[in-house]
Design a protein around this nucleic acid. Structure first.
Length: 598
RNA sequence: GGGGUCGUAGCUCAGUUGGUUAGAGCGCCUGCCUGUCACGUAGGAGGUCGCGAGUUCGAGUCUCGUCGGUCCCGCCA
């Protein structure tokens, strides 16, 4: 017997057709006489029926079957008898009485039940990932991922991009995330690094005249994990020559349109473009969620003249007073709610959270109203955009603290109060990031994006005197409050590149040692170029409606970086270490790997 | 590195103020059952309460430590 068709592809159109189906026993319902059996394969499910009066041999075999046994069966597709149809199920109108059935493999009882609708502990799912991936939801995710990837590849291919592979064993990069290192056996004491991204290679390919490059590239970063961060992840990496920001936006918007289409979501470009300063001012985040309103409002003006010392002094010291307005929440919110938000704000780093409620019977506050003249209260109401029935939440501190606190509070409130319209697809570009950021710990400037990002030409004039004001030709793509992609127009002039290196304290020598090849390449007829990279895992996660990228990765790692299926990472045998001329001081791992990295 | 949370049968969970022999549903095993679809029904097996100390006459329950999962902060150009 050889399989002729997938279970889920059959329908009433196939009545009386002789088919051969194969798959797993999803569930068996033994009525004593009749035995019903749901056969499952990737395409779907089909009900098989064994009737002892019709085929004794098949019925006897069915008696011995158990869940997850693998079988193949041949027979004619028949219509289910009147009254037993299940029109809501894809194959609910038909069934199959096998003429012949062969057991291909048995299965031990599984450590957990598939498809019970209850949440199985994730460590179990990861340990028995091959079973977890049998579940409909996980198959749906992997199928979507495959489709999205193919759609992106087709789109880029149609647009004249070349798929070029770049090394996995490569060189450590300065700045940025911690590298994974791989010891070199042929050059003891030397190390490869796994790429954090193919950044240097794709720029080099532009110098080579490839003009349009893309790669679905695995990237590695040895940093702590999150629900949306794995130590290895996949980027759709893109680079183009002779282009500007507009070209990148156009290609990206087209690419996303095709990707979203695979999840039956229609989106249209051009996406709104907001500057970094604007999104920080209005939403307190460089990846704002635009599915709901509630913008941050500046009330610093009032704080300057008021008699409330906490506000006045903060602002006099260069700080700001900003607010969020909660529409229509004055009557619905209790003192307990307000106290709760106060605690949340403190948890985010605020010294305090003041509030004003505008009710029909008058204004109430967290005890601050007595310090304000009625016209000042009115001014605050207006600036905050509040009306009767609204609550205004206030934070005074440095710009950085206020922005961060209110930005995070905005998201928390929206989630708690159900303000987010889940049916919306809010895409935007954030542009004009600063080139540099002051690193408090190391007491130096560092590149916000990466050191190959081109500053805006007009900002080069004051580059030496006020480098922190220089804007970068960098852009992030944000979807529903998640950063799904980012890139920049690169520096293609050796002089500008040297300037940037010197600003971030990279000496000529160090720069040359780290990526001298790129400097030489830039000095060898490098075309103007730029690019972008999209996080494929995150994109698919969002399109699939998952809460974690682990659910769209076939074999992901736990938060401590362990693969529970293979038990990686694990201790290496002494002979292997010797061959690599390695010694280590870490305590010998016990037989069972603990993923504790010290 | 720090904070929250979870860990009891194969799975999902309940377990009162610390008190006899730790329970339920599902799964598994054995019967019965010819239109089920989370089939039904009768019975049965199944436990180092994550691990280790401590407090106590007595710990699933309290304390400390530790391991693992997860979420977050730091970190992630």
């Amino acid at each position: 017997m050889k399989r002729s068709i997938g279970c889920g592809r059959l329908s009433l159109d196939d009545l009386d057709k002789e088919v051969c189906v194969a798959g797993w026993v999803n569930v068996r319902r033994d009525l004593g006489g009749l035995i019903f059996l749901e056969l499952r394969d990737r395409s779907g499910r089909l009900q098989l029926v064994a009737d002892p009066n019709k085929n004794k041999d098949v019925h006897e075999k069915f008696v011995t079957l158990r869940n997850e046994f693998v079988i193949i069966a041949r027979g004619k597709i028949t219509r289910r008898p009147e009254g037993t149809e299940k029109p809501d199920q894809p194959t609910g109108m038909i069934e199959l009485y096998p003429d012949e059935m062969e057991l291909l493999n048995t299965s031990r009882p599984l450590p957990f039940q598939l498809e019970l609708g209850q949440q199985v502990d994730e460590s179990l799912r990861l340990k028995y990932r091959y079973l977890d991936l049998r579940r409909r939801e996980m198959q749906r995710n992997l199928i979507l991922r495959s489709r999205v990837t193919i759609a992106i590849r087709k789109y880029l291919d149609e647009n004249d991009f070349l798929d070029v592979e770049t090394p996995i064993l490569t060189k450590a990069t300065p700045e940025g995330a911690r590298d994974f290192l791989v010891p070199s056996r042929l050059t003891p004491g030397s190390w490869y690094a796994l790429p954090q991204s193919p950044q240097l290679f794709k720029q080099t390919l532009m110098v080579s005249g490839l003009e349009r490059y893309y790669q679905v590239a695995r990237c590695f970063r040895d940093e702590d994990l999150r629900a949306d961060r794995q130590p290895e992840f996949t980027q759709v990496d893109i680079e183009m020559s002779f282009i500007n920001e507009e070209d990148i936006f156009e290609i990206s918007e087209g690419l996303l349109q095709r990707a979203f289409k695979e999840a039956d979501v229609d989106i249209k470009g051009p996406f709104p473009r907001l500057t970094y300063k604007e999104v920080m001012d209005r939403f307190g985040s460089d990846k704002p969620d635009l599915r709901f309103e509630m913008e941050i409002k500046d009330l610093t003006e009032v704080a300057k003249t008021c008699e409330f010392r906490a506000f006045k002094e903060t602002v006099a010291a260069g700080g700001v007073l900003k607010a969020l307005c909660l529409k229509g929440m004055a009557e619905k919110s209790s003192r307990k709610d307000l106290d709760g938000w106060q605690e949340v704000a403190k948890g985010f780093g605020a010294k305090a959270l003041a509030w004003l409620t505008f009710k029909s019977e008058g204004v109430k506050s967290s005890g601050i109203d007595k310090f304000f003249k009625p016209e000042e209260i009115e001014q605050m109401r207006q600036l905050a955009g509040a009306e009767t029935g609204d609550i205004v939440l206030l934070v005074a501190d440095t710009y950085k603290v206020v922005t961060n606190v209110l930005g995070r509070l905005r998201l928390k409130l929206a989630e708690d109060l159900g303000l987010i319209d889940e049916s919306k697809h809010a895409l935007l570009w954030v542009v004009d990031f600063p080139v540099f950021e002051w690193n408090e710990d190391e007491n130096r400037l560092e590149a916000v994006h990466h050191p190959f990002t081109s500053p805006r030409l007009e900002d080069l004039e004051n580059f030496d005197t006020q480098p922190e004001l220089a804007r970068a030709r960098a852009y992030d793509c944000v979807y529903n409050g998640c950063e799904i992609g980012g890139g920049s127009i690169r520096i293609h002039s050796k002089d500008v590149q040297s300037k940037v290196f010197s600003k971030i304290g990279l000496t000529e020598e160090t720069a040359r040692e780290k990526f001298g090849f790129l400097l030489d390449a830039l000095d060898s007829g490098a075309p103007p170029h730029g690019g972008i990279a999209f996080g494929l895992d995150r994109l698919v996660m969002l399109l699939a409606g998952c809460k974690s990228i682990r659910d769209v990765i076939a074999f992901p790692k736990t938060q401590s970086g362990a693969c529970l299926l293979t038990d990686a990472p694990s201790a290496a045998p002494d002979e292997q270490l010797k061959e690599l001329q390695l010694k280590h001081e870490a305590p010998k791992q016990p037989a069972k790997v603990t993923a504790d990295k010290s």
